[in-house]
Structures are given as C-alpha cells and as structure tokens.
C-alpha cells in the first residue's frame, strides 16, 4: 500500500518536472506575486504603524503562518480536488472506484503537488524573520504549541478543500464553492479582531478559517483572542483533527450518495 502511494507521488513529480525551466519560472512568479501582496500590506503598516493592534512583524508572522499552513494542506488537496467535479461529470471518477485502492488515497497521492515550493520558501523565510522581530518568549511548550498548531492548521486546510471538492459527488458542481472559500480566505490575511462580531463568529464556526492563523498566532503572541477567549489554546490544537474527522464522514456520506454523473 505505502509502496503504491510512494510510486504515485514519484510519477506525478516526474511528470511535473517534464518542463523543468517552466516549473522553476512558475515558482519564482508565485513567490514574487505573494511577496508583492505582502508588500502592499507592508506599505499600509509603514504608514499607519499598526492594524487592529498588530504591528508589521506580528502581521508578517500571521501571513507567513497562513501561507505555510495553506501550502502544506493544499499540496495534499487543492490541485487534486479543484477539478474533481470534472472527474465526476465525465465519469472518470468511476474508473477510480474499481481500483483496488481507496479512491481518496489514489487521488491525493497521484496529485501531490510540489508546485508549492515557491510558497514554502517565502513562508519559511518570512516566518523566521518575523519570529526574530516579535516580542514572544520562547519556551519549550510555546515551541511545541507553535509547531503543533501549524500541523493542525495544515490539516484544516486540507480537510476543508477536500470537503468542498468531494461535494461534487452529490452536487455534481462544486467549483463555485471554491469562490466563496477564497473570498473568506482573503479575510485571514488580517487579524480577525478588525471585523464585526458576526463575521468573527462565522470565521470560528461555519467557516473555521480563523483557526488557520489568527487563533494560533494570537495565542503564541499572547494577544486576546476574540470569540474564543481562554478556550483558544486548546481549540486551536484540536480544530484540525476535528475538521479532518468531519471531512472523513463527509467523504463517506458523499460516496454513499454518489450515483455516477458521466455516461
């Protein structure tokens, strides 16, 4: 089983590396694009010093945490599930169902995206710089917390993306859900405390993207967390695993209801 998955990953990487030059140029372009978007936020902070009580190094940590969690989670989900509705619509998904391997595992590992290399280099670089700039007391437990919540956040990204894509099994079309998702995604670039209370609640419950960066980074920096208060440290650790469990139930539910779209 593991050997098969490993082989799938290896083959996909090989196919992506077919045009090595274009692959590298694409990664550089993404690096520059995210860098410019962050540059715009830097300009804002250069002028106004803080945004919702966060200074530039703190915001840089918020942004890099989001980007790293996103790249790690999306490598296991986005590329695979953004076109999942096509697989359903054309009936290609049916051919996966008869393979002697879990269709989820096949999809995920046969499309494991190494294209996030540019994101990861930028995220790690910015994160290291930010960690040296912010006033945070490093202890053994805060280090463990930082690392664990990063994993939890990555799981959350992967699980939500998978859930949206998998909905195509029931709804046939699911890509429009991605446009809503990326709308909310935009909100995680800034500290949640600048939004009205209603929106803060949404970002902690129905669309739990607040857990991707705002909650863990706030806890790490010793800031007050809106909505959650003192429950924040614990909830940020379990948010990822909980959503993963939901995604597994959702996947099973969709698969049971799936009636094949192609033909």
């Amino acid at each position: 089983m593991l050997k098969t998955l490993f082989l799938l990953v290896k083959m996909f990487i090989k196919s992506q590396m077919e045009y090595r030059g274009a692959f590298i140029v694409d990664r550089v372009a993404q690096f520059i694009a995210y860098g410019s978007a962050y540059g715009a936020i830097w300009v804002l902070l250069y002028k106004f010093d803080t945004l919702g009580g966060w200074n530039w190094p703190e915001l840089a940590l918020l942004l890099s945490f989001q980007l790293l969690a996103y790249s790690l989670g999306a490598a296991f989900s986005f590329n695979q599930f953004k076109n999942f509705e096509e697989l359903v619509r054309l009936g290609t998904f049916d051919t996966l169902l008869v393979k002697p391997i879990s269709p989820w595992a096949y999809l995920t590992f046969s499309g494991l995206n190494i294209g996030y290399a540019g994101h990861i280099v930028l995220a790690v670089g910015l994160m290291i710089w930010a960690l040296f700039q912010v006033d945070a007391i490093w202890t053994f437990s805060s280090g463990i917390y930082f690392f664990t919540t990063l994993i939890s956040a990555s799981l959350l990204v992967g699980a939500i993306t998978t859930m949206i894509g998998a909905s195509a099994m029931v709804l046939v079309r699911s890509n429009y859900l991605f446009s809503i998702y990326f709308g909310f995604w935009e909100l995680t670039r800034y500290p949640l405390n600048i939004y009205p209370a209603g929106l803060q609640w949404i970002m902690m419950t129905i669309v739990p993207l607040g857990f991707i960066n705002y909650v863990p980074v706030s806890v790490f920096l010793g800031k007050d967390v809106v909505v959650l208060g003192s429950a924040a440290p614990f909830l940020s650790l379990i948010a990822g695993p909980i959503v993963v469990a939901l995604a597994m139930l959702h996947w099973r539910f969709c698969l049971n209801r799936y009636q094949s779209g192609g033909g």
Partner: peptide, 10 residues
C-alpha cells in the same frame, strides 16, 4: 502561468 502571476503581482 508565470506571466499571469507576474502581472498579478505588478
């Protein structure tokens, strides 16, 4: 792809 992203950043 890269041209689109570069233009996006500009």
């Amino acid at each position: 792809f890269s041209l689109e992203w570069l233009l996006r950043s500009l």
